[in-house]
């Protein structure tokens, strides 16, 4: 079953075509690395798959839901960890985690498991988020996404700002998610790090998606 099915997708950011005819099929349980230069359209592709980006032309579905008409349903079934952490600076780490867990309908047990999974230091729970390092914020954002147990993970530079332990956690998150039947799309420049933990890679360049020999 195709979890991501995109056919000739065109996305405009203002007048600029961020994606100009992108086509991609990703099956359930598959993990795919998106590589490509800055500005190639990787983040736009992930936001599109998260239901956050309006499609100008083309057809597609995510988790069986139409990209034009069912973006609201799509958003509730995916976990996106992008450049922005979606955290409130004036709340503590614990308050942020509890707020977002309730907002995404995660149980306290699922949140606890996610906190354990991301190895977030419990002493940080009472620390305002604005005082966290970039890596700690990233771990917190990953924990929020993990708590909702998404069927499709969308990770945009997930290793950015993380220490070695955090990077290892992200790697195991990818392999464990696919082992559990979830699908993972990872946009990253750290090719040597991500290649061993994904099933295949595609290249995003000039708003197009290149696969197979073209992708290398």
């Amino acid at each position: 079953m195709s979890v991501v099915s995109l056919r000739n997708i065109v996305v405009l950011l203002g007048q600029f075509p961020a994606l100009s005819g992108a086509t991609l099929e990703v099956q359930a349980g598959e993990s795919v690395l998106l590589q490509g230069p800055n500005g190639a359209g990787k983040s736009t592709l992930l936001r599109l798959c998260a239901g956050l980006q309006r499609v100008e032309r083309g057809d597609g579905s995510i988790l069986g839901h139409d990209l034009h008409r069912e973006r609201r349903i799509i958003r509730r079934r995916v976990g996106l960890v992008g450049h922005r952490t979606m955290l409130y600076d004036d709340l503590t780490t614990g308050e942020n985690l509890r707020f977002w867990a309730r907002a995404v309908r995660a149980t306290p047990e699922e949140l606890d498991q996610a906190i354990e999974r991301m190895q977030i230091d419990r002493r940080l729970m009472d620390v305002p988020t604005r005082q966290l390092s970039a890596g700690q914020r990233r771990r917190t954002a990953l924990a929020v996404a993990a708590a909702r147990r998404p069927e499709l993970w969308l990770l945009d530079e997930p290793h950015a700002g993380l220490d070695q332990a955090g990077r290892d956690i992200v790697d195991s998150l990818i392999t464990d998610a696919t082992a559990a039947g979830a699908t993972v799309l990872v946009a990253s420049h750290e090719l040597d790090r991500v290649r061993p933990v994904v099933d295949r890679q595609v290249t995003v360049a000039g708003g197009l998606i290149l696969e197979g020999a073209d992708a290398v």
């Binding site: 958003r75 509730r76 992008g82 922005r84 952490t85 955290l87 907002a103």
Partner: peptide, 17 residues
């Protein structure tokens, strides 16, 4: 502006609320 800070507005969009 509370929701603008670090993309919380998109978080609300993606929540079940």
């Amino acid at each position: 502006s509370l929701e603008d800070g670090d993309g919380a507005d998109e978080g609300l969009l993606m929540s079940g609320l």
